[in-house]
Design a protein around this nucleic acid. Structure first.
Lengths: 336, 336
DNA sequence: CTGAAAGCGCTTACAG
DNA sequence: CTGAAAGCGCTTACAG
């Protein structure tokens, strides 16, 4: 493989001059620029990313820190990873995948080895331990997820609170007065899954404002259990004729449960749901819903961390992506 | 951050000596080794991966080339990515995610920038264009997928042919004489999806040997369509009472379709299926099946490419992972 | 505008 | 066993 020296020789200039046209940071005469570019093409030269990184202290690589959680590991992850990598590339960055079960040590090692310029932390929870090495080293990073205390780190997420309000409003607007709130498993809230907590709080508050009674049902993330539990609830005498679902497993199994009981949507049962876009696609979920926005979130996340790398002194930002309702006619109008 | 020079000064030795204890490639007196290690710990020194890469021409990074295909993009991808990254780390490698839609240029750019020591090509098809820059540059690589012509590159995959035979045998052993073969969409075979082709060929051949008549049904990958098409087929008068499924969308929707028609499994309809492990988990698929082996495949893939990096002259290997049947009682015995 | 020199943080022959 | 020197392939002040 050709080096910058080969190009310099071929073009009859110095290595610094070649470097100048490469980086574009220094003025170069049009003539010499042409010569250099010809040499580059002739030798099909390409700059050695590692060498450049050593010289500039910039790896042009982002570390994406995956937090694997059995209860959440969903089809959504791949969509985020691909979207992040695509967005990073657009900005000239590569993506290093960090999947170590101990996310803290994954971050620490990447910092120690100076492998990345910044981090994208996926699936951030309250008091996420991965924040520790980040906050300590002051390394550029962005959280995907919105904990109460971001510790001065940029953060981004879908606006789950707004999503909760939108879905509650939709039920209330159609005249519903009560609904079963199908939640994630209790442990997920305890573990601080920020999206679950934010959604729940906003939904409950808005529901009380709109006089919609929400009956909580803690769901499972095991498909079979989710299905059984939905079936139990739906066949319970006096159970609400509407469902507000925030639980991917339940959303996926709900069509089965409804089927089991012969409940037509929306005639006999109304449904609104918040779930991952990928889930909706895979299962062809027929519910009026708010869906995750992997591409929008990924692009904004990359933007934030790239900006942070450029200027570490900017004040930290917390960005919420506005959710939007996908109307699929799964809510009936209740005559008042 | 401390450098090797800082450590050398702290320990009162030369940088070469520090390097020797770091790499372990040269003998060092126990005493000096202790001194150096103390200094390393005191300064919490860690070697700069980029600098080492420049000096050794080894990046210790693997490029994972994702081929995004609308029809196949499934929950399976994340499982492979995580498993690959985990396996790589075990071997001391990091993983760079390459998601460029044009996989060829992704590979070329990673080679040009000398960003990786080797590649793992996911979801390889017949005449995969990504093979071109690999074959040309002689870069270490492993194909996940088994094209006819691997062009001298190592390859690994689940043994889809064996899987086809296992499933056909299972039906035949239970006395079935005919079954609907739910296939992938036609285009997938045309595009050279090697797993689809290998499965089909072996299943057809074994079926003819076992006198099991297979009635092909080309499935869709759109869930709604898959469901409708299954319903049509199952309600067609005289349609077989057994299904051999190789199509993730169809496998996912099959429980719905069976439900729609009130067909109990295995009493009124027998089912065997080959699908991704992740799909089975997400949908709690209740079918006797052969499932993909993301962890096994990923580990073997990393092993192969790491071996190849170490010794480029070894003859190329094609490794098939033996599939195994997960019995879930979805096949009835037919009295002969 | 161009180039010689130094430096980024390592490793690796090569002497001693 | 240890160290001085050269080198990996770049970039970046600094002179000119």
């Amino acid at each position: 493989m050709a080096t910058i020296g080969d190009v310099a020789r071929e073009a009859g200039v110095s290595r610094s001059t070649v470097s100048s046209v490469l980086t574009g940071r220094k003025a170069v005469t049009p003539q010499t620029k042409v010569k250099v570019e010809a040499a580059i093409k002739k030798l099909s030269f390409s700059v050695n990313a590692g060498a450049r990184a050593l010289a500039t202290s910039r790896t042009m690589t982002l570390g994406v820190v995956v937090r694997f959680h059995e209860a959440e590991f969903s089809p959504a992850l791949a969509a985020y990873l691909v979207a992040l990598s695509d967005a990073a590339r657009e900005s000239g960055y590569s993506v290093l995948l960090l999947t170590e079960p101990d996310g803290t040590s994954a971050v620490s090692r990447a910092i120690a080895g100076r492998q990345v310029d910044g981090f994208i932390l996926l699936n951030v929870v309250e008091d996420d331990p991965r924040l520790e090495p980040i906050a300590q080293s002051g390394h550029p990073a962005v959280l995907v997820g919105m904990p109460h205390d971001t510790r001065g780190v940029d953060a981004i997420d879908l606006d789950f609170a707004a999503a909760g309000r939108i879905l509650v409003d939709h039920l209330a607007d159609k005249g519903h007065r009560e609904a079963t709130f199908v939640r994630w498993p209790e442990e997920l809230y305890r573990e601080g899954a920020t999206y679950a907590i934010r959604f729940e709080r906003a939904a409950l508050q808005r529901a009380s404002e709109r006089r919609l009674e929400l009956v909580p049902l803690s769901g499972s993330v095991a498909p079979e259990e989710a299905r059984a539990s939905l079936r139990r609830e739906l066949s319970r005498p006096g159970s609400p004729r509407a469902l507000l679902v925030h639980n991917d497993a339940a959303a996926a199994m709900l069509p089965f449960a409804l089927h089991d009981l012969g409940l037509d949507v929306p005639e006999r049962c109304s449904v609104v749901s918040l779930h991952s876009a990928e889930l909706a696609r895979l299962y062809a979920l027929p519910f009026t819903s708010v869906e995750s926005e992997p591409v929008g979130v990924a692009q904004a996340a990359v933007e934030l961390v790239v900006r942070r790398i450029a200027s570490s002194s900017d004040p930290a930002r917390s960005v919420l992506i506005a959710p939007h309702l996908v109307e699929r006619g799964s809510v009936s109008s209740v005559p008042s």
